[in-house]
Write a protein that binds this DNA or RNA. Structure first.
Lengths: 221, 221
DNA sequence: GATACCATTTTGGGATACCAAACTGGTCTC
DNA sequence: GAGACCAGTTTGGTATCCCAAAATGGTATC
């Protein structure tokens, strides 16, 4: 594994796990010392993370991208378009056996499963579902969109009810897809995404003060 | 303007203008000498162009991405999804004055206009139309998709009839959008994209031998 | 003539040195 | 005490150097 990939992966994990807070400044020298790599791979990693939207430039200098409520809403519209397109492709496919694998992903979560795992599976559901379409660009678009949403979803205050509802919706989408009911599946997925978006943005807007107190930059919608 | 941006821009232009052929190998040292920059900005530029899909890695080493017919078809599906989503957003907007600017873009091309300009305006039409949606992610998605299609479209053998038809379709899409007829506009845009894709892939598949003879790597669908 | 082998060169990955611009902290002036 | 100013430090941008691995090309061997 090259140093560049090492730094990229570790830095991405730290940012997504909120170990480095949204809005925090980054210096190439700090990352260098943190991961024991020289500035060359550090620089390369930052350039890649910039295209993912996880870090950005603040004049001269690097910053961990803040949570941006307006951006979250736009990402939701974007992912709705690409996820539905992917889902319609999948609905039209003859072989539906891969759906079982995704259903099994959902099944793997129960009351003993740590919150972190629920979070991961909740995102992987959408990513893997998009992968089934066979379209590399739709797949990447969904994966990148979920990456951008990841930190915000982690900060969202979700009660058991909301999590349960999400899983019910996921299963309903799979069921419609399995039957090849494209319009119905698309309708369910759309409602799921719109609902998730509304709850997410509302939750973060409410907690904005508290999040800022924890040092997390949250830009309003 | 930093050296990195310089190299990135110039290298992108050379690749898109086919001055460096699809499939050609690139060495960091060659680029370095070509643009009078050192390897650091050259590497940074290559990393960014990699995320645009214009260059890729060939084991160790860099390659200008070949023309990939399978990829072109997938990009067409992708752009259909995002362009239609953007167009529907635009249809729902009250202020339609920006449409005139796009119409003017189309008007700026006549029989005296060089082929290169037609090509550029043909892509900008879709990019600017997506920008009107106000959704940054849909806009970027369309722009990136058009970048990936750019070289192939340049290689496509297009007669005057095909170009004229494209312009007629463009105008029809604008007209429906101006009236806020979202479904009709989406139908027209979808047909336009699918038609373009079919002609493009068919043209390149037919010319594949000739293109290879010119040193252009063309990967089959 | 084909092939296995080895020395040489080339290449990308990484580390480091240097620079100019931006930032910082303290000081001096009014 | 507030603000202008300046020296010192930090930072990203760039150039350059080193290295190991891979490609290259020539040669000896069969």
């Amino acid at each position: 594994m090259s140093q560049m990939q090492n730094v990229e992966r570790q830095l991405r994990e730290m940012i997504l796990a909120l170990e480095i807070g949204p809005g925090e400044r980054l210096t190439e020298r700090w990352i260098e010392s943190q991961f024991g790599a020289s500035r060359t791979p550090v620089r390369a990693a930052l350039l890649r993370l910039e295209t993912e939207g996880l870090v950005g430039r603040d004049g001269r200098g690097w910053t961990v991208s803040p949570i941006n409520l307006a951006e979250l809403e736009q990402v939701a519209v974007y992912r709705e378009a690409v996820e539905i397109a992917a889902l319609r492709l999948t609905c039209g496919q003859a072989d539906k056996s891969a759906i079982d694998v995704i259903e099994a992903m959902l099944d793997s979560c129960d009351e003993d499963t740590p919150r972190e795992e629920w979070h991961r599976v909740g995102m992987d559901f959408h990513i893997e579902l998009a992968r089934l379409s066979g379209n590399e660009f739709l797949f990447r678009a969904v994966r990148d969109a979920m990456t951008r949403l990841s930190r915000a979803r982690w900060l969202e205050v979700r009660d058991e009810t909301a999590l349960g509802r999400a899983w019910v919706e996921h299963r309903a989408i799979l069921a419609a897809t399995l039957l090849g009911q494209a319009d119905e599946a698309a309708r369910l997925l759309s409602a799921h995404i719109v609902g998730s978006r509304d709850r997410l943005v509302r939750s973060l807007a409410n907690d904005r003060r508290g999040l800022r107190a924890r040092g997390f930059a949250v830009v309003a919608a």
